[in-house]
């Protein structure tokens, strides 16, 4: 599955350099450095409270690390940018605890994913006929494309809050995809799903990676899925990076085995 096999690796799309983050006395992240390569699936694993979500929050600008840099495409230091600026650069994400716009329809949620690509403001929106309407139709086409990809045609008019959990997860992925991102951050997109839903989700992630060539950062507890679909894996434990490499390398990394065997047996991760 690795698109890096036997080739000189391209320059990284993101350099995470010596990132540290703490909350009061709690060190959520300590001196994290690794690179993320274009068009790969980069997994981040680790036990509960290891700092995976915190790292994602640093990338999308919701947390500001105490020190370190996060370089995106060589030029932008995300640590210095507000979340909406980072979104404009092409970074999209989903959340561990679904953060959709609950009272809106699926369509409106996805159209909001087009926000940064659209232009109309309060005035042209209020006048509607003309520019805003043309823009709506144009972006609706892209959104329909995402709807087809994720197979959610039947619920496009439904209010998001009324949907089943698994579908909400899918809509949240859809909203991120509607941004047509260059980097897609997914925080446990398969958590709490049954095996059939998990399979669907894994298929979507692979489709997006292959068809759109989007770089994907994936936090996931299910080791089977992780080892199956990711090109590279980073392992966090108590806020420290204890391993980074291909799935094969991670599987035999003594520090990683130690960290996991210390709590559970084999490859199974605490859910």
């Amino acid at each position: 599955m690795s698109s890096l096999d036997g080739k000189e690796p391209p320059p990284p799309q993101m350099n995470i350099e010596r990132v540290s983050l703490s909350f009061g006395g709690v060190k959520a992240l300590t001196d994290i450095s690794f690179n993320i390569y274009p068009s790969t699936i980069q997994a981040i694993i680790g036990p509960n409270g290891a700092g995976k979500t915190s790292l994602l929050n640093c990338i999308s600008g919701l947390y500001k690390p105490r020190q370190g840099r996060i370089l995106f495409e060589g030029t932008h230091d995300l640590v210095r940018l507000a979340p909406h600026r980072i979104a404009r650069l092409g970074v999209a994400r989903s959340f561990q605890n679904i953060e959709l716009f609950r009272h809106m329809s699926v369509l409106d949620n996805l159209m909001l994913g087009r926000h940064v690509h659209m232009k109309s403001g309060v005035f042209s929106g209020g006048l509607y006929w003309g520019f805003a309407q043309r823009e709506e139709i144009q972006h609706r086409e892209f959104v329909e494309h995402v709807i087809d990809l994720l197979e959610i045609q039947h619920i496009r008019k439904n209010t998001v809050g009324s949907l089943a959990y698994g579908l909400q997860k899918r809509v949240e992925l859809g909203r991120a995809l509607a941004m047509n991102p260059r980097l897609l951050l997914l925080d446990e997109p398969m958590a709490g799903m049954n095996s059939e839903e998990k399979e669907d989700m894994a298929r979507f992630v692979l489709d997006i990676s292959e068809e759109w060539r989007t770089t994907i950062v994936l936090i996931e507890h299910d080791m089977g899925v992780v080892m199956d679909i990711s090109d590279r894996v980073a392992v966090l434990d108590f806020g420290k990076l204890i391993g980074e490499g291909t799935p094969e390398e991670i599987r035999v990394n003594p520090l990683v085995i130690e960290a996991y065997l210390g709590r559970e047996h084999g490859e199974a991760m605490p859910a």
């Binding site: 600008g61 979340p83 909406h84 979104a87 959340f95 959709l100 716009f101 809106m104 409106d108 941004m179």
Partner: peptide
């Protein structure tokens, strides 16, 4: 409306 429903998500979509 996005700001009303979920302001963190609103930021993150730009």
């Amino acid at each position: 409306v996005a700001i009303r429903d979920q302001d963190i998500a609103a930021q993150v979509i730009g």
